[in-house]
Write a protein that binds this DNA or RNA. Structure first.
Lengths: 379, 379
DNA sequence: AATAGTATGTTTGCCAATCAAACTAACGGG
DNA sequence: CCCGTTAGTTTGATTGGCAAACATACTATT
């Protein structure tokens, strides 16, 4: 954008914008990018854009069956991204953190080798995270509880000046989709993260919904059949028992094979997708049922919140083709609201990468919100 | 509060607060109210409070079986409140508006007789309201659609300078509870309005959640039994078919009697409450079942949004004693989130009055947000 | 009763963010 | 080659808020 168009968009004067832009360029957050394509008449503007050669954010993710790291620059460029397939359930917690620390340090090293300045780190985890303290209070699918996520990670990165934040994986995935994917256009959407567990995050008006308690988003434990099978959570007929990765594998009778594929990238999902691709009936049935169950659950959420889009993320992004139609059909039936306004059901753009990307973006957003952070070493 | 404590609370200097308070007193929005009760040491502060003798807001409500009006002053005092029992379903729409107009005008007249200055009007209606245009797009329980709520009301009030707004009844009831009831303490709650239909509104962080489309809150059409009875909405097993006022009456076998009681204040609910009071088994069963169904539906909402409180409003406030226990029990079972943080289930403080109160408050909030509105005649 | 201590509210001068308006710069078209 | 048009900058004025000193009102101590 040119200075003039920025002034127009934010409602400040050209004069004010000019001086602010000047300051941000001096700090290296913005850079000039040639002239605008001379429109009709008048002097063409100087384009300014977020700089891609100064500040970067690091995102880290601990999930049940992988670790991930991602470095993003302000312009949205992915400067580093690596997934490390790894079963994190039955290994000692400190081994997991050691592995994540190694991954994070190598990401930082690569960034610094390119003369980029990391300004912060956000750690995503599949469970209930207390943002202020950086504690992972409870992660049922990981089997962890009361783990000091932030300090464990911070201690291993060897960058004491870096501010480390921790947040919930489902929330960060939605933010990833919001900032890196098409989220800005949707503005009101529900992002469903299918992994071993099933989570959801709600974006209203381009803003992530955060409850006071930091909990929420437990779509996986929505009861879709009040008299259905028992769930360890104490309820019956929970969505997760039908559409969670392990439930899907079991229902498709692929759970025997998956044992042999631990350590294979995208172990379980890959198996499911391949089996569906081959036209295996049991798999197709399981997926159709899952789509229907998701539709029922989404119906509840849509009736309550009336988003304009439902985004299928995580493993559901890979399985989208088999889930979408039954989901839409059920949603149409169940959601009163969907009769007045169209609700689109779409595949996540980032898939399993959404959460790390969101994590990396979150730190960068903090810089955008307060550019004085840069240079003043962390917070 | 004294000026000093305000300064402390909002983070401005005493100097700044002093000058702002001065301005607001000059405009008549604040007034001094004697000295503070000399605390320990030091000079006691001059108390200032929102003035109760200048500005008032008018709230109007159209519901299925009544009309209502309410005048509130800035201090939260109810200066006028009247409910008009009236069956609005099978009467001509213009008759309804005429009656509402009369009610509104008499409210304004009384306010003006007390030398109060009405600054705006908000109309609540049980259906989908497009706030910008003031259109009632659809009100299934009223049988109306595409009714120009705002202009119809504005034309009948004979106060062309007054700005009239229209909004959804469930939303306004939640705002009423937020601003006039205990909502400020809860901050994160779900307000359930039981009337002929069942609606819900969500408050997160002291802020009402509004979806972009203006829809949402259709808790009544949550499917609590995917294979249950058909609902006119096209789905099956909708909550409203079990807990809506007419469903309750039918299940309690009181629907024959209710015909004879049309025109009686609180017709249906009163009957239910009295019958339950008498210990009528069918009524008690119906209410227990309803509580259970509400618990299941709330479980879904709680899992997703993790509020700390669920407020039962509308007719559910009157029936609270019979609904609460089965509701809590079911919620406990169904809501994963409720296991980590306590979710209180409480009776609405304002009951059926919540929506008009919220409507009246909403206009006053507009004044608080922009005090320059006062005196500059409407907007 | 005088004095010290503490907290409230007001006055004063100052600063930084923003604006309006005039000005310079860059481009296309008659 | 000048004119209209739009982009960006310079200039001086306005303003919301701050810090610090002051006046005020009350309690506690001597």
């Amino acid at each position: 954008m040119s200075r003039a168009s920025i002034a127009d968009a934010v409602g400040l004067t050209k004069a004010t914008v000019s001086s602010l832009v000047g300051e941000l360029i001096a700090r290296g957050l913005l850079s000039e990018r040639g002239r605008a394509p001379a429109a009709a008449v008048g002097r063409p503007g100087q384009l300014v854009a977020l700089s891609d050669e100064t500040v970067v954010g690091l995102g880290l993710e601990i999930n049940v069956d992988y670790l991930a790291a991602c470095v993003l620059d302000l312009a949205g460029g992915v400067r580093f991204e690596r997934f490390l397939r790894r079963e994190n359930r039955d290994t000692p917690i400190r081994d997991v953190f050691d592995a994540l620390g190694d991954l994070g340090r190598s990401a930082l090293n690569e960034a610094e080798a390119e003369r980029l300045i990391p300004v912060g780190v956000t750690v995503a985890a599949p469970g209930l995270v207390e943002v202020d303290s950086g504690m992972l209070l409870m992660a049922p699918n990981l089997g962890w509880s009361n783990t000091p996520l932030r300090t464990e990670v911070a201690n291993r990165l060897q960058r004491p000046h870096l501010y480390v934040t921790a947040d919930n994986e489902a929330n960060l995935a939605a933010l990833g989709e919001l900032w890196q994917g098409h989220g800005q256009e949707w503005r009101d959407f529900i992002h469903i993260s299918g992994e071993i567990g099933v989570g959801a995050a709600v974006v209203v008006g381009g803003e992530l919904l955060r409850s006071g308690s930091g909990l929420g988003g437990e779509l996986g434990h929505l009861s879709i059949d009040p008299n259905g099978a028992e769930c360890p959570c104490g309820s019956r007929g929970c969505l997760e028992r039908v559409v969670g990765q392990e439930a899907l594998l079991k229902r498709a009778r692929l759970d025997a094979e998956v044992g042999t594929s631990i350590g294979v990238p995208d172990g379980g999902v890959r198996l499911l997708a391949e089996s569906a691709e081959r036209g295996d009936q049991r798999t197709l049935d399981a997926l159709a049922e899952a789509g229907e169950a998701l539709g029922l659950a989404c119906g509840a959420a849509v009736n309550l919140l009336a988003p304009n889009t439902v985004v299928l993320g995580g493993i559901f992004a890979l399985l989208f083709d088999w889930l979408a139609d039954p989901l839409r059909e059920e949603l149409e039936k169940r959601a009163f609201v969907a009769k007045c306004s169209d609700v689109a059901v779409v595949r996540s753009e980032l898939g399993a990468a959404a959460a790390v990307r969101g994590a990396a973006s979150l730190t960068l957003r903090a810089v955008c919100a307060d550019p004085y952070l840069v240079g003043s070493s962390g917070r």
